[in-house]
Amino acid sequence: MSAPTGAELRLIGSLKTYVGGRESVTVEAGQTVRQALAALGIRPEIIALVIANGTQQPKDYVLKDGDSVELLAVIGGGSPSQAVNRAGVQQ
C-alpha cells in the first residue's frame, strides 16, 4: 500500500459551508494550515483551534501526507449566513 497522499482537513461546525457542506476536504501536503485555509476561502483568523493528529498546532503548521487535522471555528452563535439573514441584511 502506498502512503496516503495529502492531508485531510476536518471542518467542524459552520466551516462546512465553505466547502459545500462537506465535513472534510483533502489538501496538498507541504503547505501551512494558513495557506490551505486561504486557498479554501476561509479567513484564518476565524479558526479557534487547529488539532493535527490529536495535538494542538499553530496555523503555521506544515501539513504532511496522512495528517488528519480538525479545524474549529469560533462560532459565537449560529453560522454567519443564518444569523445575518435573520437580521435582515446581506453579508
Partner: peptide
C-alpha cells in the same frame, strides 16, 4: 458575543450590518 462577526466581516468597519447583528 459579536467579536467573531467582526473577524468575519472586517474588524474595523463601521457599517449598519454590524449594528443589526449586535441588536439581533
Amino acid at each position: 458575543w459579536a467579536i467573531t462577526y467582526d473577524l468575519q466581516v472586517g474588524r474595523d468597519r463601521v457599517v449598519p450590518e454590524k449594528v443589526a447583528r449586535v441588536i439581533w
